[in-house]
């Protein structure tokens, strides 16, 4: 008995759902104005069918509100996932939406908060002013989950949260605008920008490696790998991409392997912490491309010699999350 009751309550809560906002658009207001005109004309000419038309359109307007609401109300945001990117690149957030209703939903606009915009408009929250639209979901089929990717520019190194998402829809009649917010805790890791002028610190105490290994390694083509974000742009096989639109990275095997110890101290001549992290970031990529073993020594963390994709990610994440 209690189980049924609690189930009912849960169902009710589910039905009630999130807070979904709805307001007429300016066309909705124009529509209402036209209805008023029709009503005036109908009254003035005592025209029965004019009344009927006015009432029919008014009823349609009210139902249109429910149509628009239903188009959005049953959409649930499940999660967001993003691969790490270098600062300056766009974060590709993959948002997972779930349409829990028995109807297909159409034309839903996905926007994220844009704090940079300033406005004196007191209704800016209503109008979605400080939200920037990123993507239009054309169709979310009934009882289906769909992934949609939105690109958000990365602001700075570290973890970048998606914060608030606003989904909005005017479908099907454009007379009403309905929207709702989701808060996402999913974060994307933003690596430092891979820039720097310093040469690889090859002449340190671990200098048992051969100068020129880098270039040689780069020359020794061994095959393609699918492109992963973070791969250096110059390693992309553009010619192959032109053939079939798939991005690949040229892989080079280095005949000679060596060990490089990348240390925080090596970047001492750069004053700015961010510059130093960027330099380290570039080195890591260069080492990985060259197929070298590298270790990273940060004031807060030590990562032992290794190579490979996961090692690189480990190192870059350490840089991204570095706090002094």
């Amino acid at each position: 008995m209690t189980a049924t009751l609690s189930q009912l309550f849960k169902k009710f809560n589910q039905l009630r759902g999130r807070r979904v906002f709805i307001l007429p658009t300016r066309f909705g207001i124009l529509y209402a104005a036209f209805l008023f005109l029709i009503l005036l004309a109908a009254i003035n000419y005592s025209n029965s069918l004019g009344h009927i038309l006015c009432f029919l359109l008014a009823s349609m307007g009210v139902l249109a509100m429910h149509y628009t609401y239903n188009n959005l109300a049953k959409i649930e945001f499940l999660s967001a996932h993003a691969d790490p990117v270098f600062c300056g690149q766009d974060i590709q957030f993959k948002l997972l939406f779930d349409n829990q209703s028995n109807n297909d939903c159409y034309l839903i606009d996905v926007a994220t908060k844009q704090n940079t915009l300033k406005s004196w408009n007191p209704f800016k929250n209503i109008t979605g002013f400080n939200y920037q639209s990123h993507h239009l979901i054309e169709q979310l089929s009934a009882q289906q989950q769909q992934r949609h990717t939105i690109a958000i520019s990365s602001k700075k190194r570290g973890k970048q949260a998606l914060e608030q998402i606003r989904i909005a829809s005017r479908f099907p009649f454009g007379l009403f605008d309905t929207w709702t917010y989701f808060t996402s805790n999913d974060k994307a890791i933003v690596y430092p920008q891979a820039v720097g002028d310093l040469p690889l610190p090859i002449s340190n105490e671990q200098g048992q490696y051969i100068v020129g290994a880098k270039t040689k390694g780069l020359d020794d083509f061994s095959g393609f790998n699918p492109y992963r974000s973070g791969d250096p742009i110059h390693a992309i096989a553009w010619k192959a991409a032109a053939r079939d639109d798939v991005l690949r990275t040229k892989q080079f095997s280095s005949a000679v392997s060596g060990n490089i110890h990348l240390s925080w101290q090596d970047t001492a001549q750069l004053k700015d912490i961010e510059d130093r992290l960027s330099q380290l970031c570039l080195w890591i990529i260069e080492c990985e491309t060259a197929g070298l073993n590298y270790a990273l020594a940060l004031p807060t963390e030590l990562i032992d010699y290794s190579h490979g994709h996961s090692h690189q990610q480990h190192c870059l994440t350490a840089l991204a999350l570095y706090e002094h």
Binding site: I43, I52, F55, S59, L63
Partner: peptide, 30 residues
């Protein structure tokens, strides 16, 4: 979708038609 909306509005329209307080025209000179 358009037809469905229209058909669904008919019951509402009937309620409005019967109960909406009618005003005797004309409002201004015909």
């Amino acid at each position: 979708m358009a037809s469905k909306l229209l058909l669904q509005s008919i019951p509402l329209m009937l309620v409005l038609f019967v109960f909406f307080p009618r005003i005797a025209g004309p409002l201004w000179g015909l």
